[in-house]
């Protein structure tokens, strides 16, 4: 391994897992499910953007 990875064993479709972001956010006062759902949708676009440069 040449350097420290931020995340390991990441599933496809994920850049930054919700679980990591949730810890950073601390207490969520409203609908956590809504925040998670929208986070994951945009995170997926980030994933597709990255892999777009490889899958061509």
């Amino acid at each position: 391994m040449s350097r420290e990875l931020t995340f390991k064993n990441m599933p496809p479709g994920v850049c930054v897992p919700w679980e990591a972001k949730e810890k950073e956010l601390g207490e969520i006062k409203g609908d956590a499910g809504l925040i998670r759902e929208q986070w994951e949708k945009l995170d997926l676009f980030g994933y597709l953007y990255l892999w777009n440069w490889v899958q061509r």
């Binding site: 391994m1 931020t6 994920v14 990255l50 892999w51």
Partner: peptide, 13 residues
């Protein structure tokens, strides 16, 4: 190879 295998998405970025 090792970094790619450990987390290809992060390696790409």
């Amino acid at each position: 190879y090792d970094d790619f295998i450990a987390n290809p998405t992060e390696w790409i970025a």
